[in-house]
Design a protein around this nucleic acid. Structure first.
Lengths: 216, 216
DNA sequence: GTCTATAGAACGATAGAC
DNA sequence: GTCTATCGTTCTATAGAC
């Protein structure tokens, strides 16, 4: 049968499916999101998912991969720029976290605004219990965490390796928690706006994580 | 028909179901956890869940409620003790977070060790997308957050209300992320122990959140 | 490539014997 | 209270017409 490997004249159906899947996965998680939901929201036929992606699992792997990879590229690019800019001096913790957190919240590209569905999807992907996510985590997080841990160790030589790993873990946890923890997010703003203020969230997040990581 | 409202001579079946549900919910989330899984793990009959709890939804509401309520009581008790002990002086942020975070990780009671299944279950409950969780959050979090925000405001009068709410939200996110974010948790210890070191996690968590909250 | 129709399996819930 | 058996629904995935 052979799945579609390359783009053709029209990827509209494929794209519509991915976009709908993003939103539904963000809202309801993997198990609660059904292919009927997806194809209905995308306004395509039910069979289209299996034709284009082979399976529900593959659809989500592809959806998540296509979003995370550019973000991780941007993260490492900014980290490299920081290292370059500071020469032999270590990069401040807040600048390191800035390069790690910002790209997620500028998910549609720098100078573009944040994409709530995309932010939530990634947050949920890393807290999703489904088995097939495990490998994704390894693929997308191993190199990234190694690079960031290396740089954080250089900036904070007074902290032993184990402490650095714990605090890095807590920093990642804060970021992920902030993206999916709708509970407190709703109670945050005194105004009853449905849309969270991501600009405020991300700058607070960076300052919070930097202070939490760097404390005596 | 009438559900069982009061305890009878033997709550063994009921208890076994709740315990099994906790573990499975912690591992797989609400939708992936089936009643067939639960009753099989509990070694009881499939129909027992609907007899004792009426529905799958009700089972999890009861399981979560029975765990969170004692923890919240303990939290507020410790907070009240802190306020009492400090008299008119404000309670330090780290002490406030100590009273908020510790009870979850001493979930089987003080002097008892942490209960991984319980910790994960509560973390997952607050990040679960399922609709029926929404009301639970309101029930178990509204009063708690009000009390803690009041006390944090007294301790940090230099911070405006909105900033306090944002940082409190981030602190809760850190805690929740730490309980369910298995990804990085696995990569944490250089030793390949399956069991996370909760003692280390919780003390790092409290110091981290206090520093993150209290920064200039 | 896109559709209809359906296979095949799993689910929550319940009826009714004991 | 506890069991077996099953109803009615919903899911992913696929076969086959167009």
């Amino acid at each position: 049968m052979s799945l579609r490997a390359t783009s053709s004249t029209s990827d509209k159906t494929r794209q519509k499916i991915v976009r709908a899947a993003e939103q539904l996965f963000a809202d309801k998680g993997y198990q609660s999101m059904t292919l009927r939901d997806v194809t209905k929201a995308a306004n395509v036929n039910l069979a289209a998912v299996n034709y284009h992606f082979g399976s529900k699992c593959n659809l989500m792997r592809e959806a998540i991969r296509s979003r995370i990879e550019p973000i991780n590229v941007e993260r490492l690019k900014r980290l490299a720029e920081l290292i370059e800019a500071h020469g032999p001096a270590p990069v401040p913790v807040s600048a390191i976290f800035n390069s790690l957190f910002r790209p997620l919240f500028e998910s549609d590209g720098p100078s573009k605004g944040p994409n709530p569905a995309l932010i939530q999807m990634i947050g949920r992907a890393f807290t999703e219990p489904a088995d097939f996510m495990r490998n994704l985590h390894k693929d997308f997080f191993t190199e990234l965490s190694f690079r960031y841990l290396t740089e954080l160790k250089r900036t904070c030589p007074q902290l032993d390796e184990e402490t650095i790993r714990y605090r890095f873990f807590l920093s990642i946890s804060t970021m992920l928690g902030a993206t999916i923890n709708t509970v407190t997010l709703e109670n945050l703003s005194s105004s009853k706006s449905t849309e969270p203020n991501y600009d405020k969230i991300v700058s607070e997040l960076i300052a919070y994580a930097a202070a939490g990581f760097d404390h005596a």
